[in-house]
């Protein structure tokens, strides 16, 4: 059977990018959400820049995590509801392969912009200047981990009525390591310590989850289609 993997992969990414491009407001919502959450912290705690500098790394991480999860929740919802998922399952291109394509498109539209926005948010919270590169690198790896686990959660809950509420309950405990490592790396860099250890661990976690999670996601989608 002459099924072209490359064609299916590129086709999926093109489809998702096109669709998101035509619904720009919805695509940008996670980024606005990120900015709003960042703004809430000084309001709830203190506008004092010294105090904010101490928690800046953690705050940016929590906000990025929530924004990424908010958008990942509906990663497969549209395809499930309009029946595209059935077509994907029957296409002869392995589901995990198509899952990677979908994740990649999603990451380009949400993960990457968050990485780019993060330094601006960190600046507003007075993060130490030395930590910016580390923050971006950690978020680059971290958003990939979030996207892997988020995809599993999204696939498991896509056919469930109350999926929206269930999703964070399933996914949050799984992404604790990424949060810890990423936030600590940023904090270390801000304190002038070496963030290398935490970053390497995060990179290992990233490789592990990016390479294994698509299989779990594909299996979950199968269950949801059943």
């Amino acid at each position: 059977m002459s099924v072209s993997y490359r064609q299916a992969f590129v086709g999926q990414i093109r489809k998702d990018l096109r669709q998101s491009g035509r619904r720009l407001a919805q695509t940008l919502t996670p980024l606005f959400f990120f900015s709003v959450v960042i703004a809430l912290f000084p309001l709830a705690m203190t506008p004092d820049s010294e105090a904010l500098a101490k928690i800046a790394g953690g705050v940016v991480w929590v906000a990025a995590l929530l924004a990424a999860l908010l958008s990942l929740q509906t990663l497969f919802r549209g395809d499930f509801e309009d029946g595209s998922l059935e077509l994907m399952a029957l296409s002869g291109v392995p589901m995990w392969f198509q899952v990677i394509a979908k994740q990649m498109a999603h990451w380009l539209l949400t993960g990457l912009p968050l990485v780019i926005l993060a330094p601006i948010a960190a600046y507003s919270l007075n993060l130490n200047g030395d930590a910016y590169i580390t923050l971006m690198m950690a978020l680059l790896l971290g958003t990939l981990v979030l996207s892997s686990f988020g995809a599993i959660g999204a696939a498991l809950t896509v056919s469930v009525g109350q999926g929206g509420l269930l999703f964070p309950v399933l996914v949050l405990p799984l992404i604790v390591p990424a949060l810890i490592l990423g936030a600590k790396a940023t904090e270390f860099a801000a304190q002038g310590r070496d963030p290398g250890g935490a970053l390497s661990l995060l990179a290992a976690l990233c490789i592990l989850s990016v390479s294994l999670a698509p299989f779990a996601t594909a299996a979950s989608l199968r269950v949801s289609l059943d």
Binding site: R18, Q19, D79, G83, E86, L90, S91
Partner: peptide, 18 residues
């Protein structure tokens, strides 16, 4: 067998935006 099957279910499998 699956790649030989074209399935049109209750849901049309069409994305509304495209």
């Amino acid at each position: 067998a699956t790649p030989l099957i074209s399935y049109v279910g209750h849901r049309d499998g069409l994305n509304g935006v495209l």
